Computed example of a mutant assay.
Amino acid sequence: MLRDATTALVLVLALSGCAGIGQPKPYDSAGINGLVIPTATPDPADFGDVVDNPWLALEAGATWHYDVTDSGRTIGTIDAEVADGTTTVAGLNATGVRTTTEVDGETSEETHFYAQDDRGNVWLVGADSPAGDWRAGEGGAEAGLAMPADPRLGDGWAAYVVPGLPDATVRVDDQSREMVQLEDEAGTTTRQVYEKGAGLVSVEDLDAGWVATLD
């Protein structure tokens, strides 16, 4: 789940074109057709209580540790932990992921909230961060897609829409049977690599020049 260090670990959500989401917006790329991205009105009937997408599985209590390096020099760490239990966001049972980032002597913490629809798509439905707290459906905030059930090369979508925050977009720019690489634009540009069954294994901040690698 580190942009400006932390937010890049964040993957953003969206909703399937089911009841309560509104009319599906057309997408040319296979794998996200019929999804309304972004959306402020997720229908709880379309969602479950667990996030088990093979690219982004979030089991309660799971932890990840990343070493952050720049030009071969270790400059910090990133630690992420999945919260026990769920938090109600927009009527959904959302899973929280708390991320602590220490880079160049500066520390920040963020929590992001995810929910998975009944088609296996994972959505980002809220966040608590230094940039501001938001929840889908409140104050104009809309959920975006964190990880599709079936990501395809060339797919692109809105990561979220939150008044006062930079526009956020994600695109699948490389893929194999066991790997998906996303390029994320939200104030800074990051490249995130996911491995099936392992989740997020590396994040590269293309603007700052550092790389966070799963330990």
Rank of each mutant, 00 (worst) to 15 (best):
M1D: 13
R3L: 14
D4H: 10
D4S: 15
D4Q: 15
D4W: 14
D4T: 14
A8M: 07
L9W: 03
G17M: 06
I21E: 05
I21M: 03
A30H: 04
N33D: 04
N33Q: 15
T39V: 04
F47V: 01
D49T: 15
V51H: 10
N53Q: 05
P54E: 06
P54W: 09
L56T: 00
T63F: 01
W64Q: 09
W64I: 02
H65R: 10
H65V: 13
V68W: 01
T69M: 06
G72Y: 03
I75Y: 13
I78D: 10
V82G: 12
V82R: 07
V82Q: 09
G85A: 08
T86V: 13
T86F: 03
T86P: 08
T87F: 05
T88P: 04
V89W: 04
A94R: 03
A94N: 09
T95H: 06
T95D: 02
G96I: 03
V97Y: 02
E102T: 15
E102P: 10
V103T: 11
D104K: 15
T107M: 10
S108P: 10
T111W: 10
A115M: 08
Q116I: 04
L124W: 07
G126P: 11
D128R: 03
D128F: 01
D128T: 11
P130K: 14
D133E: 07
W134Y: 08
R135A: 03
G137E: 07
G139D: 15
E142A: 11
P148N: 10
A149C: 11
D150P: 06
D155K: 00
G156D: 09
V161L: 11
V162A: 08
P163A: 10
L165T: 06
D167W: 06
A168I: 01
T169Q: 12
R171V: 15
S176G: 06
R177S: 11
E178Y: 07
V180P: 00
V180C: 10
E185N: 14
T189Q: 12
T190I: 08
R191I: 12
R191H: 14
R191E: 10
Y194F: 12
L200G: 00
L200E: 00
S202Y: 00
V203P: 00
V203S: 01
L206E: 13
G209F: 15
T213H: 05
D215N: 15
